[in-house]
Design a protein around this nucleic acid. Structure first.
Lengths: 150, 150
DNA sequence: TTTAATGCAAAAGATTTGCAACATG
DNA sequence: CATGTTGCAAATCTTTTGCATTAAA
């Protein structure tokens, strides 16, 4: 599944504008790496991106892919799924619940809400497959990081 | 932040019952590792669990912690946060969106919903900190994995 | 006693870093 | 031309595995 050409062009333009504004050099590698993410609808990981870019650019290196992806992330040009940069975290709470996650320090807290447990999903989701648990993740900044510490 | 004693006891009992049912041996290590997750409200990762268990049980090894955590996960006694077992995945879609994730193959697809973008969070969340983006993750099984392939 | 689980040490994987060569602005 | 960026190789960090020993049922 890939993104429409027109949308990809828009994303490329935005990327170039941001790089110019930030004084970040527009290298061949960065262009190809960003393009790859921009045109992929399947949320690839670093290694998949590396493999795909390498088809067009055989000399690119994996470490450049990593450096570039995190740069794009810091620039807000790309987003990571879930709690991505972290390792697996475990939870013995089996009741249906949701999470608040602090974007700065990783602090994570469960919360409950019957309303959220019962949210209606759009019909488009039904066509993707069989639906299991639905889980809400709220990103934010915790009180501690805000300096609003009790 | 730790879980109430009574709740921990309940979780321990459930854990022991499941192990018995499944013919899984109740070792000292498993008890301590599960207890650690059961009484932690902060969603620790494998290494944190290892460090904490080691205080009480200095001979436990990190590989046992890993083996046990994934066993608990397979038994449904513990849950992982987000897309945990995977590596970081990237997305250049900056529009507000949500995800459907196949639990079997990892297939992930964006979907949109104004209703979900505007869900009301319970007030308890406000007290945790400043709220940023809210994101819904639907877990399920994709059509391909269901054998309902188009 | 039988079988599964542990600890150790080593292997495998993933990600990051120092540095000289190179390309961009 | 000056500086930031790359590729390489090595280092680091995380997670997994093989195997002899130990412990649970």
């Amino acid at each position: 599944m890939s993104i429409e050409k027109q949308e990809v062009e828009q994303r490329m333009n935005h990327f170039q504008a941001v790089c110019r504004d930030e004084g970040i050099k527009l290298t061949h590698q960065r262009m190809e790496i960003f393009r790859e993410v921009a045109q992929s609808g399947d949320h690839p990981d670093a290694d998949q991106i590396f493999q795909r870019v390498r088809n067009r650019m055989p000399t690119v290196s994996l470490d450049t892919v990593y450096r570039t992806l995190w740069l794009l992330n810091d620039l807000g040009l790309v987003v990571t799924l879930g709690f991505s940069r972290e390792r697996a975290r475990f939870d013995a709470n089996l009741k249906e619940h949701h999470h608040f996650v602090c974007e700065r320090c990783g602090f994570t807290r469960d919360f409950y809400s019957e309303a959220l447990d019962n949210i209606r999903l759009p019909e488009s989701v039904d066509s993707l497959g069989q639906i299991g648990a639905t889980h809400v993740e709220v990103r934010g900044v915790c009180r501690e990081c805000l300096g609003t510490g009790a």
